[in-house]
Amino acid sequence: MKRKKRLWITIVSGILILATGAATAAADEPERFRSKGSIRYQDSGGQEIIWDAGDLDVLFQYAAEGKSGLSKALGGVGTKLIKEEEWQFTRNPQTEGTIASIETVQQMQEISFDFLLQALEESQTLPAEYTEKYVLASSDNLTLGRAAWADGSLLRGNNHDLIESYLKGWLEGSGCKEYEAVYDEEGRWIGYRGKET
């Protein structure tokens, strides 16, 4: 205990260096933390001890960059943040978000990383409001050369459905009233043919 007391006395008696202007906050912003300055001293063992309040800003900025940037990027890919009793997110295109991205410290406080991670995880899924009438597409459902994303997959349109529609039209145009699907030896659909009567 004596050693600790001696150490503290050492701190307050003059080895203390207050560094002014260490805060990184912009001039027009209120100070973010009450701590400021830095303390440097060597302990009795000769080891340098540093307490720098600027480190709080460094970490704060590191976290803020992640949350703010993530929320903004999520907004760009269709996620809207909505403030009701609690923060929620929606991917319904018809719903307006409360904010475009996290901009205030309070929002940063209220919106957790895990919340944003969940939004990111669901960013290529079908919004619940659409699940009754829609399902996520596959490459077969897209026109050739057109692409979109669904559930982590780049859907590269291969004209499958389009050709299927064409075939149905072709058979009907040729006078065929009833047709049936044709499959290859591996059970894959490969076309249509008129039913043999």
Binding site: G75, G76, V77, G78, S123, Q124, L126, Y130, K133, Y134, V135, L136, A137, S138, D140, N141, L142, T143, R146, A147, A148, W149, A150, L155, G157, D161
Partner: peptide, 12 residues
């Protein structure tokens, strides 16, 4: 370019 009843995401 997408079949009826199917959906996907592109550029938000």
């Amino acid at each position: 370019n997408i079949s009826k009843g199917k959906a996907a995401w592109a550029d938000g």
